[in-house]
Design a protein around this nucleic acid. Structure first.
Lengths: 201, 201
DNA sequence: CCGGCGATTGACTCGTCAGTCAACGCCGGG
DNA sequence: CCCGGCGTTGACTGACGAGTCAATCGCCGG
């Protein structure tokens, strides 16, 4: 029984991992459910044994990862460090995530975050929740006199997140070269750039 | 004959304008070609008299607008003004475009620019061309000693464009309030923020 | 060794649209 | 007044793919 349940959870995982590869390669809308099943090496119908719909597969992948990021942002804000370093930690986490699993990040960014009209619509709350937490970091930075008080935290959060996401997107679509060196450069660049504009004069 | 041709061009325009409204309201993938025809008040088949496919309708809208922006960026770079003001002019143009025709900008951003996996794929060259021109502005700023020389122009361009696009996206999906005041705030904020980080110390 | 139940299979159904096409009407010229 | 062609119509087709379901498999407890 325990073995069976473990196997069941593993099968589910196998399907999810296969879905990441297929979504990354072909895109969510363009791929067929049978592509996921083939990639996972299971029968078509089994996908529907573990998930209610094709949407739910993508949904699961997104929620799994996004909740980790949201939690991290919140935790980072609690640390007793300068706001600038907090943003640095968030930027590092996102860039590291891409280094660790580019395909998963591609799927989340391209199919969910940047697709707010189609699929992302259903997760707008979670997405904007993360933005709001970044805004909170900025707000705390302003409260503590580390950032200029006259910039709207909401705008700053969007600029910060947008800058990172666009850099990842440019890697995803080979518009900029990617490697460990570029990853490190990006981390410091984004933080320097955004914080440089937020620093009090 | 002249009248007839004018009418033909007008009909084409009517269909394009209707398509903007439909794409903005329902999204490109979710809407039917018959929705466009209905919105335009013409028969289904007429859409195919003026356009080869549903894709070509969106393509036309995108190219019409994007080419204007690309040309503007290039022209701005020729002006004898500080690099910071050049970026300001670009930011203003984009924000003004949104103020002037939010539906069209929504379609271009949501369905093309941010959909590089599906539709945007076919226009990657045009999209990245605009990024490259922004990078050139940064490069010239560095050459003239107005910007720090140690930031990759490609990265800076992505951060700059990404910041603006994310702000527009947040307006599009009601994550941040939008109005004339916010539009002005956004222009100066984005430029201050990005340039603040690019300014030599 | 047997009965039963959850896991697994994949052929099939069913709805949805993009794109086609044959027919029609309006207008201008002969 | 008739003819020809372009602009226009909308019913139809063909392809495609998500989701269903009845049948089969294989493991486990009795």
């Amino acid at each position: 029984m325990a073995t069976a349940k473990a196997t069941a959870a593993e099968k589910r995982r196998i399907i999810l991992d296969a879905a990441v590869r297929v979504f990354a390669r072909q895109g969510f809308h363009t791929c067929r459910v049978s592509d996921i099943a083939d990639e996972a090496g299971v029968a078509y119908g089994l996908v529907y044994h573990y998930f209610r719909s094709k949407d739910e597969v993508l949904s699961t992948l997104f929620v799994e990862r996004w909740s980790v990021m949201t939690a991290l942002i919140e935790e980072v804000d609690q640390r007793p460090i300068p706001a600038r370093e907090k943003l640095g930690a968030v930027a590092s986490f996102i860039v590291d995530s891409y280094q660790h699993d580019p395909e998963l990040m591609k799927v989340i960014i391209v199919e969910v975050t940047r697709a707010a009209n189609s699929f992302g619509q259903t997760h707008l709350d979670e997405i904007s929740g993360a933005y709001a937490r970044i805004a909170t970091i900025v707000e705390h930075g302003q409260r503590d006199g580390e950032f200029r008080p006259d910039v709207s935290p909401g705008f700053a959060a969007m600029a910060f997140y947008g800058a990172i996401e666009q850099v990842l997107t440019s890697w995803i679509f080979d518009l900029l070269p990617f490697g460990p060196a570029e990853a490190e450069e990006a981390k410091t660049m984004v933080v320097d750039t955004i914080c440089g504009g937020l620093d009090p004069r």
